[in-house]
Nucleic acid binder design. Structure first.
Lengths: 220, 220
DNA sequence: ATTTAATTTTAGACAAATCTAAAATTTAAA
DNA sequence: TTTAAATTTTAGATTTGTCTAAAATTAAAT
């Protein structure tokens, strides 16, 4: 099956919101896609029609297995192209998103597989996000945000999702960077701030906002 | 400016027909694009509107400078991607066209330039067609097959690609050899055979198969 | 438990690209 | 040169994806 770029964009955005927020709303999806809620509703009906989505009016929606499968293939392509742009064409990690948004809609299955091989079957993209394999499985250990990490479990920083100068500056000050090994010592429910322990340093506190944007991966 | 994939397809097809056949007709364009003459007319009006085409109803049409510039950029992208697919992803030269048809619409100017550099600034694509530079100029001296030579343009035979005894025998009989100066007088769409004129000789006809294997270069 | 507010959906419209069938125009032929 | 044939264009419809404004539904607040 082949779907329009717009349908693919919707599936991908639903997938992301679904795994980040757990639940997806019409408004959130419209916001993510820079479109209007009414347009989203229109598209939801079409996706349901094509059996990619479970949807009942006013009751919410979520991807079914087929929808997830399609979304994962788009994500796979997006991340492989990002990897290509950064590692082969020498782009910075912060300038490749837009281009990958276009390239992810190139349809040839065979092209994706050859590209994957050409790149040496990378497991994560330049931002540290895992690249699904051709069956949509994450071969790589999966990434979660610091906010989601269980207490007292050692993990390694593998990515930063929102890369603003201000945040990077803050992280640098707290000695947190790619590859840093750390664990969460306490969670304060009042403001969802966390106390973090990095080996050989005294504990530091970070806000919920920062925690959400620091991605880590479990030790095997 | 950014144009739709369909507009780009039309511009490119017009460019090719224009340089191969000298003149382009609505029907020929519809045929080349696998669409209907009525649809072509619709698009011609839009392209004229956007000042990419000189067009007057029933009187014919041709690209203006801006239109040619856009077409050449699409062709540039197409051929660079073909080169990439063959040289880097190990595809055969005969399986890359479809993929390049999609890739040629990726818009980032910067991506094209980086890709060009990554590939080592190739001068021709895997089929031997020249790759226009970023200003739309053909940097490479061009060798093309007799089948690609525009009508009534004098050229000199510069090579024979498939050298079988049978073909050389045939060419000798028609008085065609290295260095022969000739021009194409007519093209018969029915079987793609050509009528060739060599100075001081009466016209001769050669088949499409032969034409494809005789390489010529333009007089400067 | 009503009322108010927020969310979501519908109804109806629009732009882009395409189509079919019919009309206009040009070209070729008798 | 008048008729016939081929080409090209128009008129009107269709599909896809989008929009605005208004209505329907659900959630929140007093």
């Amino acid at each position: 099956m082949k779907y329009s770029a717009s349908k693919e964009d919707h599936l991908k955005a639903i997938f992301h919101l679904q795994s980040e927020q757990g639940v997806v709303t019409t408004n959130a999806l419209a916001e993510a896609l820079q479109t209007r809620p009414a347009s989203v509703t229109d598209m939801l009906k079409k996706l349901k029609e094509q059996k990619l989505l479970l949807y009942e009016r006013y009751k919410g929606f979520r991807l079914n297995n087929e929808g997830k499968k399609v979304a994962l293939q788009i994500i796979r392509k997006h991340r492989l192209w990002e990897y290509f742009l950064v590692k082969k064409l020498q782009f910075g990690w912060d300038e490749v998103h837009e281009m990958a948004e276009e390239l992810e809609h190139i349809s040839s299955k065979k092209l994706v597989e050859r590209l994957d091989a050409f790149l040496g079957f990378p497991e994560t993209d330049p931002h540290g996000d895992p690249i699904p394999d051709s069956q949509g499985r994450f071969t790589s250990p999966r990434q979660l945000s610091l906010a989601q990490l269980p207490l007292n479990k050692v993990a390694e920083v593998s990515g930063i999702s929102r890369q603003t100068t201000e945040m990077l500056e803050l992280l640098q000050h707290k000695k947190i960077g790619l590859g840093t090994k750390l664990e969460v010592r306490r969670k304060f429910p009042f403001d969802n701030s966390l106390e973090i322990k990095i080996r050989n340093y005294p504990p530091v506190t970070i806000s919920s906002l920062v925690a959400k944007n620091v991605l880590v991966k479990d030790e095997e």
